[in-house]
Nucleic acid binder design. Structure first.
Lengths: 218, 218
DNA sequence: GTCTATAGTTCGATAGAC
DNA sequence: GTCTATCGAACTATAGAC
């Protein structure tokens, strides 16, 4: 946003504003909006508490900045991946869902740290419900359009349900507890398993969406 | 729990302890654990703030009591419904998931009010992660066992994933349903819509689980 | 059991030096 | 821009009258 300087960012050195955003992302991820304190964020960032208010005015402003920074990247990347999907392929639906799941779970999307903020936001954490809608609704409509293109026999309502269910799967997948590994008595998930998680989520979302289409034809 | 009196409850009059639990359930549902204040709960219940500490000692104790009250009913009802499912039927998997989804969404399970606490708990709200595991894990294992019985070709890991995905669907479904009129405690969905939601969730979970089984046979 | 009153802490935000 | 210092409000929990 700030283009007051023609020069590039300070070479190789992260500025305080980005440090604050990174620290806030971690604290919000662990404690949620209400549970996070400005003091904890300032300590994590290694800056004075007052500096946060200088850059972001209020706690709400900081939260919005944290969410927006990732959301813009996630939705942009999602739509770029979606554009690459060949909608005439027989497994097009699975590729659509993989484009949906990959960005928020990948390391560039903030990994599991931001994914938890994403999940908390989806269940109503934060102050502004309109924030999530404004950031993610346009992208959601594009994915619903893609599903409707691949499955012209399904109603648009059914496609919207398919998208909504996929969002639920994503929210549940990044929740802190109740992981399937523990329920099956297996070792905890490693970072290498992210690809496998994405594949499982897309596979499940595809099977579920297909079932909805067959039950409720237009 | 309290059996100090042989007589029944006060006739037709709800005692203060239950009033506090009901009020706390609503406030926790709207604001999450950290966002809820004892003052707001006391106001909603119409009692003095100090009385809450007399009955529940601390905010954590109150939260645990709110969660436990519904969790016991939900898991008990879930397992009772699961016992009635004929596991030899061709649509047994869908009936298993309907038994999973119905109790937490029904009015006796607290309706959408407690469902939101359930969702927040699943993504890590509250203080004690072990609380959710202790309350829901035994029931989860029974559902995974049922899935493994119906699909002996699937690994137990796959069945655990099928259960975990269904939990994600549930969390996502109740998270997005938050709306202001629920602040008054009135139901926001009609019973017909709830039944349709349960059917859609079970249908989607079945299709997704089936897809996981076919992709990853033992 | 239920109340009022308040202790003791932590919070978000601001003021002002540098 | 970044810091220290602090304000006023809100918080959890406790004390003590009834």
């Amino acid at each position: 946003m700030s283009t007051s300087q023609n020069n590039a960012e300070p070479p190789g050195r992260m500025n305080a504003r980005e440090c604050i955003l990174d620290a806030a992302e971690m604290v919000f991820s662990e404690a949620g909006f209400a549970g996070a304190s400005m003091k904890a964020i300032a300590l994590r960032a290694g800056v004075a508490q007052g500096l946060i208010h200088y850059h972001f005015q209020s706690k709400d402003g900081l939260y919005a900045a944290v969410v927006e920074r990732r959301a813009i990247w996630i939705t942009t990347t999602r739509e770029a991946l979606l554009d690459e999907v060949d909608l005439t392929r027989p497994d097009a639906v699975r590729h659509i869902f993989e484009a949906f799941f990959r960005p928020p779970l990948g390391p560039e999307g903030g990994g599991t740290v931001f994914a938890r903020i994403f999940a908390l936001l989806a269940v109503g954490d934060g102050r502004d419900q309109a924030l999530a809608e404004r950031l993610y609704d346009p992208s959601a409509r594009r994915f619903i359009d893609a599903l409707a293109t691949v499955r012209p026999d399904a109603s648009r309502e059914t496609c919207a349900w398919g998208y909504s269910m996929a969002l639920g799967l994503l929210v549940g997948a990044v929740g802190r507890s109740r992981r399937p590994e523990r329920l099956a008595g297996m070792p905890e998930r490693s970072e290498d398993d992210t690809e496998a998680l994405i594949r499982r989520l897309a596979l499940h979302a595809t099977g579920g969406f297909t079932a909805l289409c067959e039950e409720d034809p237009v």
